[in-house]
């Protein structure tokens, strides 16, 4: 079996000058297999970006060990850097460049020949529907197009491991799906993509495996199906209409939603509840829990809530 692309063991990070002294990463261990897309999910400030920055050799860790493609991030940075590429969180392309120049010059900067860079630039721009704006100055692009340009830049590279830190933030649904397709294509070329996101639908749609990070620690790890299997109630049943709440409690965990109730239940209880609801002519929907539901159960909060331990004086 091939060596994993990334192996982290007990990685901790306390930012120098942090007033609270709280670790941004607290003994995080992860194994990202080679090839495919690995999703890191968590709230803002949970430690996703800190982990990505350490693995991408941009930030030193406080303790632990981390190997990327078999090389130690502390001592073998140069070997790692030769084989990685990264779209940092909140990064922006140089505004005085044209769209195609952002991609082309990035590839040239990495040492690619002009012919290769030109060909890959064209392919990447086409893949992400940017050909129409290839001659436009970045300063005249919308925020979403700029983000797509950065994705095109990295996906066009020959890197074996790509770090995409919240690559689709600010993109409209259509553009997000274009980025997803490009990311999927890149992963089919036996490349490893570490993707951070707080869009749970994105993590679910793209990631072969994913890890849920909370307060700098890994709380869950596995394929989306494995994560579902680990939660207490793997099914969700939504009921609308005039439903007596006290009769629902025996099926599982009940919470009120607008115009009805949401019940998390095990499979037999979910089926029984569905039958019960249909007999009474209630409108319902039933299915496996979403990643968002799992997140809510594991963390106890929505992914949109900021983490309380966001590290001071540093990017989350």
């Amino acid at each position: 079996m091939a060596e994993p692309a990334i192996v982290a063991e007990g990685v901790s990070k306390v930012y120098p000058g942090s007033r609270s002294g709280a670790p941004a990463l607290d003994g995080l261990s992860l194994e990202v297999p080679r090839g495919g897309i690995y999703g890191l999910i968590g709230r803002n400030g949970a430690g996703k970006t800190t982990f990505v920055r350490i693995a991408a050799t941009q930030l030193a860790m406080t303790s632990g060990t981390l190997r990327v493609l078999g090389q130690d991030v502390r001592t073998e940075e140069r070997a790692i850097r030769a084989r990685i590429a990264c779209v940092p969180q909140e990064s922006r392309p140089l505004y005085f460049l044209r769209t195609e120049e952002v991609v082309y010059l990035y590839l040239k900067m990495r040492g690619m020949t002009s012919a290769d860079a030109r060909r890959r630039t064209h392919d990447a721009l086409e893949e992400l529907s940017l050909l129409e704006v290839r001659k436009r100055l970045v300063s005249r692009l919308s925020g979403g197009l700029r983000r797509r340009t950065l994705c095109a830049m990295v996906l066009a590279s020959d890197a074996d491991v790509m770090f995409l830190d919240e690559p689709t933030t600010g993109l409209d649904p259509l553009a997000r799906r274009e980025v997803w397709e490009a990311v999927r294509r890149a992963s089919r070329e036996h490349r490893t993509i570490l993707l951070t996101t707080h869009y749970l639908d994105e993590a679910e749609a793209l990631s072969g495996r994913l890890a849920l990070i909370e307060r700098g620690q890994r709380r869950l790890e596995g394929t989306p199906a494995e994560l579902r299997a680990r939660v207490r109630y793997p099914y969700r049943v939504t009921l609308w209409g005039d439903v007596p709440r006290d009769q629902l409690a025996s099926y599982g965990a009940v919470s009120e939603i607008e115009g009805g109730f949401l019940v998390f239940a095990r499979e037999p209880e979910a089926r029984e509840l569905a039958r019960w609801a249909l007999e009474r002519g209630l409108r319902l929907s039933m299915g496996p829990v979403s990643l968002e539901d799992i997140f809510l159960e594991v963390v106890g909060r929505s992914i949109d809530a900021d983490a309380p331990l966001a590290e001071e004086g540093a990017e989350a």
């Binding site: 991408a56 941009q58 850097r81 990264c86 779209v87 909140e90 990064s91 922006r92 990035y106 900067m109």
Partner: peptide, 18 residues
């Protein structure tokens, strides 16, 4: 400016460029 506002240095660090 490139380092803080555009995160360009991070892009370069995570690449073969020394």
């Amino acid at each position: 400016h490139y380092r803080h506002d555009l995160k360009f240095q991070d892009v370069v660090v995570a690449s073969p460029v020394e």
